[in-house]
Write a protein that binds this DNA or RNA. Structure first.
Lengths: 219, 219, 219, 219
DNA sequence: AATGAATGAGCTTTCATTCAT
DNA sequence: GATGAATGAAAGCTCATTCAT
């Protein structure tokens, strides 16, 4: 905005500001994951970020705004991830549903710390409309994408299911698998992937074999 | 909800210890659901129970112990509910899976306030071993019951799926549907039931028709 | 007072009341000695007495009054002890000073628990006039007795000291020895007796030999 | 006393850590002396220091640690005082015992507020090992110094007493005189000095005359 | 006479926020 | 842009006291 007006090191300050903010957001995610939402203090966050006590209020005004921006950051990152996975899958509906389902189990979006932090925010969202609105703003897009692909799968596979219901089922399963991963230990992610493949096999037998491996595509 | 009845009762002193404890536990569940875990104070709980400030420390020693006993109470109640539903279903595997799946969507165990409180505790469990141990102590029994019935369904229906995987799928779906219900508004429970029936239809087509209605049983 | 009027078990109730009060006073002394003045609660006292929570307020009205009566009890007991020792010593000044000094080191008045409780009350007395008045009401008599005997000793022994000063010295030493006993462990009492005898020997050499043993009396 | 100066200072923020800590320690001593140990609250201390409520926890973490550091401060100050007095007295044993005895009655170490606070801590020490360890850590040095000088006095004066016993006597007398000063009012310190001089005269007649005035030294 | 559940004032402690530097 | 000493509201907890039984 006023970058060009600033004579010394144009754009430097604003970038630095953004860098600090992201640094604090990442420290917040890590702290919530490590100590839990209710035990997270700004002192914890500033220690995790290696900065001073007053830093959060300086950059975010209040704890509340830090949390809101942290949640926003997570939502954006999550949406970017599945959108990119969906784009990379190409036009084949089976490849698309596989991408949507499996990308959700990537360490990138559901590492232990991300899952713990997601659940912390979801829980808070139960009583906080502002959190709720943020949480599900992008998520509705994800659910819609799943439903759309389910529709394509039904049309392509000659099955008779209701895409909305089956999409909701897949979506619910994904969230349930996240909860399992939060609870479970080391092998939980691999186990979750197996379950997801079993779901693909059971729900879309014309597109996936019994192991959940995608059958030869349409091409 | 009906806790407020106590507020105007004149002779409310000298209730038995157990009565007071359950009263406080119910007030705790209601308060967590209404204000969120991190915003719940003992003052809130005592107001919700219609009692005095020091009452929680008197009966539970500390906030922490109140929470632990509240969680224990919920676990016990939850387990009793599905065990009783399973027992009532009789021997037919299809009836049993239907009972296990649908009882989980009963208002008795997943009213809005129960779901919100469950998620609050699950989130805390991510960083607290004592909560975690409590949360999943009975739940493992529920998952095992689902898996066992899935095995019976496969044997009876001539399908080839892996009962452990499909059981885990069903279980994950249930938890995902709870999350949906927490997020969603009024019609969420009915919607969740539809999804659950669609899952039964898709996963066990030899036992349930396309609407998720159980086909004529073995008798 | 109304003993005779009470037809059933005359005098029983009043006696029972006094028994309870002394029981509670003794429990108070024990608790102060064990936990310290500032950490002593009425709950502690009632537990130590093997009685119920509300018992102290029932018999003493308030914690403060319990403490005051406890202190009064200790003062009375202490005064009775040295007066009786003094009476038993007979007319010989050397025997009298020996009795006054040594009786103060008897386990009866300065057991570990009594000393700890005495110091607790003395410390409180620094800021509380009511405690102070009680503490030193009888004690002035003890000091006066010492001074009087010191006067007799000087007259009998041909020494030239000031009885008031030497009496005050002896008295200060006694209190200092109590402090030593509070601090010190098992052997502190015997050590204190040795010091007291050394004091007698040094201060009244015509009446006590180098070991602090009384020389042959006047008779 | 002069703590109140801080209350109206405008720019009282950002004092160095050590300055604030000592300020709070002095406020603690004053408050214990004024209200007694058991009645001393952190609110009292912060008011006495002219600072805000949370200040003690900010600088000392807990009330307990404030008390411990206060006691440590007093011990250090006390030890520095008698060591310096002893050093100033030179080599003459009579001058040394006089210095040790009389410096203990200086207003610097036994002002009313210091004595009251010392007795408060000693009383607590009866039931608290950590206090006890602190209280007597330096004090043992003081007693040892007295004993050593008593040995020199015996050798120099041709007396036959046991230095350990007479040293313990002197030491006990000092503590007893402190207790007298705590109890007594205005003239108590002068009275205590007279008693101390009478003790020097009686115990070391070859070094002190009947008034407790040191006789011509060795030179 | 005695009990012990219940109260609520007052305490220590925590911590988001402010602001002089 | 960043620090960290200081604040003070609000929390959990303690415990003397009350009182129905």
């Amino acid at each position: 905005m006023d970058d060009s007006r600033n004579q010394t090191e144009p754009g430097r300050r604003r970038e630095s500001r953004e860098v600090r903010r992201e640094q604090l957001i990442r420290a917040t995610i890590g702290t919530i994951a490590a100590k839990g939402f209710s035990a997270t203090t700004l002192a914890d966050v500033s220690v995790a970020a290696g900065l001073s006590r007053g830093i959060v209020n300086f950059h975010f005004e209040s704890k509340e705004k830090l949390f809101l921006e942290t949640l926003q950051f997570m939502c954006d990152e999550y949406a970017a991830h599945w959108r990119s996975a969906l784009a990379a899958a190409g036009p084949d509906p089976a490849a698309r549903i596989e991408a949507l389902v499996m990308c959700d189990l990537d360490e990138a979006v559901c590492s232990d710390r991300m899952i713990a932090t997601w659940f912390a925010f979801w829980s808070e969202a139960a009583t906080r409309p502002d959190y709720r609105a943020l949480c599900w703003s992008h998520d509705e897009g994800y659910l819609a994408a799943i439903e759309a692909v389910c529709g394509e799968l039904r049309d392509a596979g000659g099955q008779g299911f209701d895409p909305a219901r089956i999409g909701a089922l897949v979506y619910a399963m994904q969230e349930g698998l996240w909860l399992r991963m939060m609870v479970g230990g080391a092998g939980a992610r691999d186990e979750a992937r197996e379950v997801a493949r079993a779901a693909l096999a059971s729900l879309f037998p014309t597109h996936f074999d019994a192991n959940g491996t995608r059958r030869a595509g349409p091409g």
